[in-house]
Structure formats: structure tokens, C-alpha cells
Design a protein around this nucleic acid. Sequence first.
RNA 1: GAUUCGCUAGCUCAGUAGGUAGAGCAUCGCCCUUUUAAGGCGGGGGUCCUGGGUUCGAAUCCCAGGCGGAUCACCA
Length: 504
Amino acid sequence: MTTGFSEQETIRRNSLQELIKAGINPYPPDTFEVNVKAAEIRKNFTANCSLYQQASMAGRIMSRRIMGAASFVEIQDESGRIQLYVKRDDICPGEDKTLYNTVFKKLLDIGDIIGVTGFVFITQMGEITIHVKSLRLLSKSLRPLPIVKEKENTVYDAFTDPEQRYRQRYVDLIVNPEVREVFIQRNLLINSMRQYLASKSYLEVETPILQPLYGGAAARPFKTHHNSLDMTLYLRIANELYLKRLVVGGYDGVFEFSKDFRNEGMDRFHNPEFTQMELYVAYKDYEWMMKLVEEMVEKIALDLHGTTEIKVGENLIDFKRPWKRFTMFEVIQHFTGIDIEGKTEEELVAIAKKLEVPLDTTMAKGKIIDQIFGEKCEPFLIQPTFITDYPIEMSPLAKKHRTKDGLVERFEAICNGKELCNAFSELNDPIDQRERFELQLELGKRGDDESMVLDEDFLRALEFGMPPTAGLGIGIDRLTMIMTNSSSIQDVLFFPQMRPETRG
RNA sequence: GAUUCGCUAGCUCAGUAGGUAGAGCAUCGCCCUUUUAAGGCGGGGGUCCUGGGUUCGAAUCCCAGGCGGAUCACCA
């Protein structure tokens, strides 16, 4: 054979032809009536009960134990696995035993999707099982599945190669049930958050992903081109500036679950596309927003786990309100013993050097402080903690602090050593905003390739007047990682970004 | 991008002075009508990631490249 198929693939393709010859459509077009799921049976069925005498269910064959004229098969549907008992004389009541002897035993394989009807009973070994009365092929599988076995909570031959798991997520989902669970949790999390926001009567909106100017965050963008307009467009790095335009427009509470794109390095916390939820509420400030974040995240933990305490790696993280709060200066003093308040740029450089915090020449005062915080404080903040009052230089969209010179009304929540969200009292003074953009342009000239660009239309919107507004951005992938105890962002994305597959 | 580890059958892995490859499961054949990592007997299956080099001979040693993981740098 010069087909390029493996032995097992060839055998399955031959079986497919045999099925067709036997008059069986391996991919039948009609519906199969399912009246119960595996988990439902396993949950409700007890010895001698009269439930599920006419069970009809469909799923994928995951294992087979053939004992001559009777067989045990495990099939898996969306809800889990259940055992089938397939007896020759039951599925072949007449003289013709072809369905069992040939079709079932020879032509069906692990991985095939079948539909069965029968009654539920419990075997001598105590396993809840469907005694099959009829069996039908619903879809033939042409590739061998990895066979994962388990006994006494030990898993054998687990499908673990991360490259294959991420590239062929469908296989990962079939054979690794805990993976499926992570994405169910992700969906519950998003639903919980959406429900919380909807209950406050905020409006869920959609804003452009393709933007002529990228803004709202400090990051490098992806660049693309629109043919008809013959213009450069950028994939959004944040939705902040568009959402604020909507607040100018008169919506007092808007939020968006958004895919954002940043053209930067990848590691276990970063994928080029990721999901954020951004929220803007008029007539509120960052103090108010902290309360909202605590309440919302606590609710999510309760909705997902029924408790505020979540095990993440070695740590037990408690989302119970209220969370600890420190100002940026306080937390730096706490971890380094140095009070950096009121220090000049030169003094800060010296302090960073003393603390062995690496700097580069493009870093101005704000970035140096952020760097010290990132090196010396952030990794050690395990329990959810609000850090407040950031230097103005690193927050060009935040409002100046009402009492503290040189600072803005901003907070981040840190959890498990990583930023969970970022929020501030939004800058709504258009004159100040223009000056801040101009400062960013200066930083750009100095070599900071993440500095923001000036958005004239956004300034025009602000000039019409934006109410005082509190804004929030919260990383959905990061929050999902914490809530599902996942150590890599790739484990909470169905299809993490990968280089193209190569074949030698 | 840097450092480091890995890449051998469908899956998980072994391969030990360099002598042209092995196990378990899966697969194929036979036996077995309540088994469960079913069992018994027998069989097949591999561009050893790719390309060079050293050598009589390379999965194994050397060089270059590909892909992935981990750590670091930038960032959420």
C-alpha cells in the first residue's frame, strides 16, 4: 500500500467499505432519538428501580470487552461514560447473527459513534449498565483514538503530550474528561459575571475589533489592511476608548466581553488573543469599583465552587470580602523597606539598582516604580489584594488623585502573584487628557514602543463632556485559570496559538 | 528573542561501550453469553522530527534546522 495510511487507518477504511457493502450507511442522515444521558442514568438508577426501561442514548465507543457471544462496551456522551451490555441473541433475535458477529465485532471500532436502546440494570460487578436491545452505527471513526485506561484512580497511558493536546483539542476533549470540565467552568464563570452585570441593568455592547487607531492600553498591536478602503487597521488591544465614547453618548453603564489582541511574547500567562471584560459606570469612582469587583468575583467563586476558598496550586485563595488594600507606595515599603514617595527619577534609579531590579533606558519614573512593584511585590501577593494610587506617568487614561499629587485614582487587584484586573476613575477632563496623550508621544520618542497614540476623535468625544465614570478591565482567561486551578493559559483556551504543524 | 529539556508503533514509554528497534495498551486471527487497566493463545505494524557530517556501520556521537514544554525578558 502506498496510501500513507497507518495499518490501523487502513483497517478502518476497509471496514468502512465492508459496512457499505453490507448495506449500512456509516454516516446516516436521519436523527437518532436520545432520551437520556449517561450521567443521568448513573445518578438516578438504583438496584430494582424501574427507571430507564426504554433508554435510548448515543455516544462514542471508548472501550470494548468482547467475550464471545456477549460484550461489554463503554460509550461516552457529553455527560460522561456508561457501560453497555451487548448480547448477540438480543441484538440478533433471528437466525441471522451478522449484526453481532460481523458488524459489531469486526467492523465497529473504538471511536465510532453509535446509538443504542435497551433497559438499565446492574451487573454482578455492581456496574450500572444498559442492556442493549438494538444498536446502530451513527458515525464511523477512521482514526485510532489514544486509549486511556484507569484502575483504582491510577491513569494508564494518559494522553499527555501538550503539543498534541493543544493542536488536536478534539482528541484531548474526547479522552481527558477533566479538560472538558475546565471549559464548562469557563462558561459558568462568564455566565455568572454576565448575570451579575445584567442584574445591575448595565448594557452589554459590542465595539469594533478593527480600529484605525489602537488605544486604551500600553501594548503593541497587530496590523492589518483593508483592501477597499486601502487603509491600515489595527486589531484592538483594548476597548476602553470606544466604551467611554458610549458613556459620553449617554449610557450610564456599559460592558463588553471582548477578544483583544496584543502582538507580544507568549508564555503560560499570555496568548496573542485573549478575553477581557471591560465595564464603565457613570457617576462612580474607583473606590466604588473596588467594592463591585470584590462582590462580583466573590459571587463567581460561590457560583462555581459553592465556597469563596479556591485551591490554586499550593495555595488556598480566599475571595471572601473585603479584600486587603494597599497603596502602591505602602506595598513597596512593605516588601522592600524603602519609602519611595516623593523620590525623583534619579533617586528611583538608584533605589532600583540597590534592589537589583533591572531597568532599561526608556523607563521613566512611572515605569521604574511599576518595575520595582512587579519584581519585589506582585509575585508575593497571593490572596486577592487591591493595590491603589498609581503614578500618573503610567496611567494616561486615569483621573488625577483627588488629594495626592502625582498619583491617579487607579487600582489593580492582584491574586496568586498576577494582575487580575485594572481599574480607575476615568479621566474625563479633555484638556488634561490631551496633555497626557502628548506626554505619551514624548515617551514614544524616547523609545517606548508601547506608548499610546493620540486619538483625536476620542478627545472630541470627551470635549462634549463625559460624566465622572469608573472603569474596569478584568482578564477572563486569568480569572478562569485561578478558578479552575490551571497553571497555563493554554489550558483555558480551546485553541491556543501555535506555530504551523510541520511534517519533517 | 535567550537558556534548557524533549521528539522512537495509534497512545504511554524503554533502548544501556554506535552493530540496521522493543514493551504494555490499541490493532489483526482464534477461544470465551454479567466483564471492567477482562482473560488465554498466536500474528502484524516503525521515513527512530528533518537535513548534513563522522564511521565499515548512527535512534544512539557532531553540526544545522523544525516543532513543543519549562524558565527568563516584554506584556494582561
